[in-house]
Amino acid sequence: MKNKIFKKLFFVSVLLLSSTYSNAELVVIVHPGNSLEAITKDKLKRIYLGKNKEFPNGLIIAALDQEKESEEKEEFYKKVVGKSLSQVSAYWSRLIFTGKGVPPRVLANDKEIKSWVASHPESIAYINSENADDSIKIIFDVK
């Protein structure tokens, strides 16, 4: 029900403002089988900087990232990691070119990310909440 209203509102706003801008928030998702129910911002930050590599259940974390340098991506890094995208690129360049780290795997869009997460128990990702469904589990709202 709530979802329907959101969709309608979204549709109307698109029509009225002829803009694709959406207020929907970003959510952090994992495989539904992951025992993790919630995560802290600090933990997420450490995961996305490659400093935390293990889920509580012992699985080695495989973080996913958005390929495009979109507003959403910028927002995620600003709010969760506390860095701009260029700071994040500089950070990873120090690790990549010394063989000390590999940045998150990038996928083209929310749809691809969602289906990857749904089939990979070790994955973690962020997508627009509008694109979330039962195939994945939400563990964090990016605010």
């Binding site: 690129s89 500089a90 360049s93 120090r94 070119f97 010394t98 000390k100």
Partner: peptide, 18 residues
């Protein structure tokens, strides 16, 4: 390998990193 003598030694040629 590259000697990690100073903080940026290992990526000293990657100007983008600093």
């Amino acid at each position: 390998l590259v000697l990690p003598i100073v903080m940026s030694s290992e990526y000293v040629d990657v100007g983008y990193a600093y």
